[in-house]
């Protein structure tokens, strides 16, 4: 059985008399040491999906249906005390903006030691040793001195390294990273991605990487899940999905990348934008923006299916022309 199994997850947010549903029956799983990428535009529900694993949906939002099985226990049924044993301990999280995640008035060392002592019976001295080791592991130069630094004394890349070190402190089996490099420069992004990939491989840690950057996902993950308007529209091995996308939305995302277009020509774009939760179109939610839309698409919500490992939620999946990634400007 997979380490993490999410089944039929539904999340809703009551809003006055209405209830907005952010996730509609999302299923996915993650094996030990596996790396999964969740892709989609803002508002696709990728962060909600990841947050609900750790039961971090802020009230009045709630998980209304479905289960999150971690090592056989359903995390949605745990009380707060039991959840704290998992959260930040067995499953850690890395957020987008390291300046918002770190406490600005505490030194790096204090924050790391505090985190360890919250989860383990451990002396301050031992906690300090582990913290320094972890800082070394994420390649922070002169780790001992950095323990005394405050977050503002570090650059963006260094801060994100510290956040990764904190996530690794308790030797978690899964790390959830929500857009970990979006706030960073391209060069630093490459360094952080190399680092995260190496750490996950060496420690056999599972990774759920949430991003809207398909290029990053294609380099780091083994499996990919594309979300649109609270549903999974495509899922499969990263190479297959990237090289040979089956859903018109995935296709559009890949074709919109500047590197996939002829320099100087108009970029392929997906017209329109993600619908808001209270105005999701009937039938396939993507139909107003889809280039292959026809009458059938307005009738029923297409299920996620397919013969091989690559699953696609589109009724026309057999008729959509596939393209080869190596040819530019298709």
């Amino acid at each position: 059985m997979a380490l993490l199994e999410v089944k039929g997850l539904e999340v809703e947010f009551p809003l006055g008399r209405k209830t907005l549903q952010a996730l509609h029956g999302v299923d996915f799983s993650l094996d030990r040491g596996e790396r999964l990428g969740i892709v989609g535009e803002s508002g696709a529900g990728k962060s909600v999906a990841a947050f609900s694993i750790l039961n971090l949906i802020s009230r009045p939002g709630r998980i209304s249906e479905g289960e999150v099985l971690f090592d056989g226990t359903d995390l949605t049924r745990l009380d707060d005390a039991a959840m704290r044993e998992i959260r930040g301990n067995k499953i850690s999280m890395i957020f987008q903006d390291p300046m918002m995640t770190l406490n600005p008035v505490l030194t790096i060392g204090t924050q790391m030691i505090e985190c360890l002592q919250a989860h383990r019976e451990i002396s301050k001295e031992d906690a300090r040793k582990i913290s320094i080791d972890k800082l070394k592991e994420v390649m922070i130069p002169s780790a001992e001195n950095r323990m005394e630094s405050y977050p503002h004394e570090l650059s963006g890349g260094m801060r994100q390294r510290v956040v990764i070190a904190i996530a690794l402190l308790t030797d978690p089996s899964i790390i959830i990273a929500d857009e970990p490099t979006t706030a960073l420069d391209v060069t630093i992004q490459a360094e952080i991605m190399v680092l995260m990939l190496a750490l996950c491989k060496n420690n056999n840690v599972g990774l759920i990487l949430i991003t809207h950057d398909l290029a990053v996902v294609s380099q780091v993950t083994e499996r990919i899940m594309v979300m649109y308007a609270g549903r999974v529209v495509e899922q499969g091995p990263t190479r297959e999905v990237i090289q040979n996308p089956g859903h018109p939305y995935t296709r559009g995302l890949i074709k919109a990348l500047p590197q996939e277009n002829i320099p100087g020509a108009r970029l392929n774009q997906i017209p329109g934008s993600m619908p808001s939760l209270d105005a999701i179109p009937a039938g396939c939610a993507f139909n107003p923006r889809c280039e292959f839309v026809d009458l059938e698409c307005h009738n029923a919500i297409p299920p996620l299916c397919g013969e091989g490992e690559q699953k696609i939620a589109c009724i026309h999946r057999d008729r959509i022309p596939r393209f080869n990634l190596s040819e530019k400007g298709i």
Binding site: V186, V216, S218, E260
Partner: peptide, 16 residues
């Protein structure tokens, strides 16, 4: 160095 840091879709792993 900057050019090699652009993530590429068809590359295997990160290489920069």
């Amino acid at each position: 160095a900057l050019l090699s840091a652009i993530p590429k879709m068809d590359a295997k792993g990160v290489d920069h």
